[in-house]
Design a protein around this nucleic acid. Structure first.
Lengths: 139, 139
DNA sequence: AGTGTAGTTGCGAATCAATTGCATTTAACT
DNA sequence: AGTTAAATGCAATTGATTCGCAACTACACT
């Protein structure tokens, strides 16, 4: 299991074996993972955990800001990733569901306009979908 | 039931009573609705329909391009709306879930950047979240 | 108008991700 | 080491959505 000491452990959460496992998997991953992928990876490593525990741990991490929850493709996929300093957006392959990180953000110099309602904007989400280079040329 | 004849009926779909009902509710609505909201509205009008039928009809309409499916707030809400000529994005109130349409789109003059992967971009989704003016000043 | 048939719906059961309840276990403080 | 609130194992449940199948109906063709 990858050392999780590089991450500052969130206050108020006990440092348990299952939580270390989940965090470790997230640290090792290059891209966002689903709860089931995290669960499977932990089982593959020979450790034991319950899926409901994974969900509970992810919820706790999200609440502490350590992890960011994102969903893409109109509900089909919910993913979890370590919260990165600058926020990120993703492009998703419609076919193989590969996730590619966007390097820039369209909202950086953009002011959303609403007709008469004013909205206190807290955040935004941008998702791009299409085909990755591997899937572009399938049958 | 509102007259649905202003909308060109999609080819290959039989014009049935239930489909007219669903379309009529969508025409009457000012903003996107969930499947259950559509179902309830039809029941409230004294007509009878099954929820699974609503889903099937919405799927068919989406496939024909008549209706657009959107989900917001990280999976919590899936909404259906008549497809508008120009595409739309929404701002969602985190509290009351009110939907406000954005008048402009940040992607209009924006080129997404990816490190080494190239993506054939087919579309995008932008979602803004925050508090609407009604919820801004709650306790 | 009557008939054939593919498409559609009623209805219930099934699915799937996610959540919850409760008894047991454990991390962390004294 | 003892105490306790928090965390987990485990199973059952929820809630949105989908599926299977028999009955029905819109529509095309006599």
């Amino acid at each position: 299991m990858k050392d999780t000491s590089t991450i500052k452990w969130p206050e108020g959460l006990k440092r348990t074996k299952t939580r270390e496992s989940v965090l470790s998997v997230l640290i090792d991953s290059h891209s966002p993972l689903s709860a089931i992928e995290i669960f499977s990876e932990i089982e593959n490593r020979g450790e034991s955990i319950w899926l409901s525990t994974v969900y509970r741990i992810l919820d706790a991490f999200v609440e502490k800001g350590l992890v960011t929850k994102t969903s893409v493709l109109n509900n089909e996929i919910t993913l979890y990733d370590l919260t990165h300093s600058g926020h990120k957006h993703y492009a998703v392959c419609i076919d193989c569901h590969k996730i590619v990180t966007m390097e820039n953000c369209p909202m950086d110099d953009f002011k959303p306009k609403f007709k008469n309602n004013d909205i206190e904007v807290l955040g935004h989400k941008v998702e791009i979908y299409g085909y990755c280079k591997d899937c572009k040329h399938k049958s």
